[in-house]
């Protein structure tokens, strides 16, 4: 009888190189997190979103500031790579509902993103997953922002049921919005068009005309940089990103990829 030799060829799995670099920089070793993030990175690349980001911070992975300060798309621990510097009071929670929450009095993060050197006047967007429902609050708080002599690059997701998406403008138009707890993309794609997407679908536009890119202050996250940090937020956040202006399809695709990430993470 002929003898059949059986060879077992080991299958090796390797993470996407950019995902792997993030794991190295953050020290994330949890396999569930690594697999979920790897799939997320591949999805962003398949949707051609990856190269649109200036920074993308996952605030629902890892154990706290040391992991969450790292920019997924450029995981270098430096200001030039847009790491977040967590200043003042923050709480970083893990497990189901994982988030990072500034305290509303001193907490914010410097993204080190200077609009004039990084952003494009008529193609700029911010994406924020807000995990707190307080759109009707009478306390004005900025989710991110920089301001200089009436020039604005700032987002406020909820104030008396109104959302402000003032991107590279000195205009102040806003739209009605009764929900803050959602994934928001706020995207300028033309000189007089900014669109607000909630969970991947447009909820309205504003016609604030673009003016200039701020050159003397970086964009703060969880507060507003008007020379010093002010209008501190107490909202919980799960993702924060700055990117080029996105179309409706791009915002919807990000929502799909991000929803898959959150589901896979189990948070």
């Amino acid at each position: 009888m002929a003898r059949r030799n059986t060879f077992i060829i080991p299958l090796t799995f390797s993470y996407d190189a950019d995902a792997a670099a993030y794991f190295t920089a953050t020290g994330i070793t949890n396999t569930v997190e690594k697999d979920a993030i790897n799939t997320f990175v591949l999805s962003l690349k398949s949707y051609s979103l990856w190269t649109t980001f200036h920074h993308l911070h996952l605030l629902c992975v890892g154990a706290g500031a040391t992991q969450r300060k790292i920019n997924l798309v450029n995981p270098v621990d430096s200001d030039a790579a847009f790491r977040l510097s967590f200043l003042g009071g923050w709480t970083h929670s893990t497990g189901v509902g994982a988030n990072s929450q500034p305290n509303g009095t001193t907490g914010y993060a410097d993204s080190f993103l200077l609009p004039s050197t990084t952003l494009s006047l008529n193609s700029t967007g911010f994406t924020i997953d807000c995990f707190t429902e307080n759109a009707s609050t009478a306390t004005f708080m900025y989710d991110c922002g920089a301001y200089s002599a009436f020039e604005r690059c700032e987002i406020a997701l909820g104030y008396l049921n109104t959302v402000y998406a003032l991107i590279n403008t000195n205009g102040v138009a806003a739209i009605a919005n009764t929900i803050s707890k959602a994934l928001y993309t706020l995207s300028r794609t033309a000189s007089s068009l900014t669109t607000i997407y909630r969970d991947g679908s447009s909820i309205g536009t504003n016609g604030n005309v673009s003016s200039v890119l701020i050159s003397d202050g970086t964009v703060y996250f969880g507060a507003w940089n008007g020379g010093v940090a002010q209008y501190f937020s107490n909202r919980k956040y799960r993702v924060y990103a700055a990117h080029a202006g996105w179309t409706g399809t791009q915002a919807a695709n990000f929502n799909t990829a991000y929803t898959t990430l959150i589901t896979a993470l189990g948070v």
């Binding site: 967590f86 003042g88 923050w90 305290n103 009095t105 001193t106 907490g107 010093v228």
Partner: peptide, 18 residues
């Protein structure tokens, strides 16, 4: 995570309980 002493409307610096 870094201390961020903040000035209030009364001219006092403060930090938070966190």
């Amino acid at each position: 995570c870094y201390f961020s002493p903040t000035l209030d409307a009364d001219g006092n610096y403060f930090i938070s309980i966190e």
